Computed example of a mutant assay.
Amino acid sequence: MAATVQITFDAHDPGTLATFWAEVLGYELDPPPAGFDSWDEALDAWGVPEERRNDRSAVSDPDGRGPRLFFQRVPEGKTAKNRVHLDVRAAPGLQGEERMAALEERCEQLVAAGARRVRRFEPGPLDAGWIVMQDPEGNEFCLD
């Protein structure tokens, strides 16, 4: 049986980061457990105090193809460059200026959603070109 993958992010604000990545990937926030109409209803029933209700959040691909993303609150901040990052395929199949224009358009949308643009890499003989970005908590990702 093939293994499945969940990608976990350490975060200061799991709810906000989950909402951002749902926007980036076209994912949806995970629904509340069966028998509950909302997460607040479930957390009330479980006795989770108000100050702990943003300790974790998750988003999933509505088509069930991509990995689930899980966000967990941690006390420490990010201190160095990611050793692993996500490449968001924003211009599959496109080349040259058409590709870079599509990446720039998506970059603008994500900046409006809270991302930060870091650097653009131009197309070359071995590379198609990409844009390095950071999510609202500084995690690097690339528009590819």
Rank of each mutant, 00 (worst) to 15 (best):
63 D>H: 08
114 G>S: 07
120 R>A: 13
49 P>T: 08
104 E>K: 13
120 R>W: 01
51 E>V: 09
24 V>N: 01
72 Q>C: 02
78 K>G: 03
33 P>E: 06
36 F>Q: 02
44 D>T: 14
128 A>Q: 11
119 R>L: 12
33 P>V: 08
2 A>S: 14
141 F>Y: 12
30 D>G: 07
105 E>N: 07
40 D>I: 04
107 C>A: 14
64 G>W: 11
68 R>M: 14
37 D>I: 00
9 F>D: 02
116 R>G: 07
110 L>F: 05
9 F>N: 06
16 T>R: 14
22 A>N: 04
79 T>K: 11
90 A>M: 04
14 P>W: 02
7 I>F: 12
25 L>I: 10
106 R>S: 10
92 P>Y: 09
119 R>H: 12
21 W>N: 03
43 L>V: 04
109 Q>W: 00
28 E>R: 15
140 E>T: 12
12 H>N: 07
105 E>C: 00
29 L>W: 00
75 P>W: 01
74 V>M: 10
122 E>N: 13
27 Y>V: 03
88 V>A: 09
71 F>P: 01
130 W>F: 12
104 E>A: 15
35 G>V: 08
125 P>F: 04
32 P>D: 05
99 R>L: 06
78 K>P: 01
96 G>R: 11
135 D>E: 05
36 F>L: 03
11 A>S: 15
78 K>A: 08
57 S>D: 14
87 D>P: 09
126 L>P: 00
3 A>Q: 07
23 E>N: 10
101 A>Q: 13
97 E>Y: 01
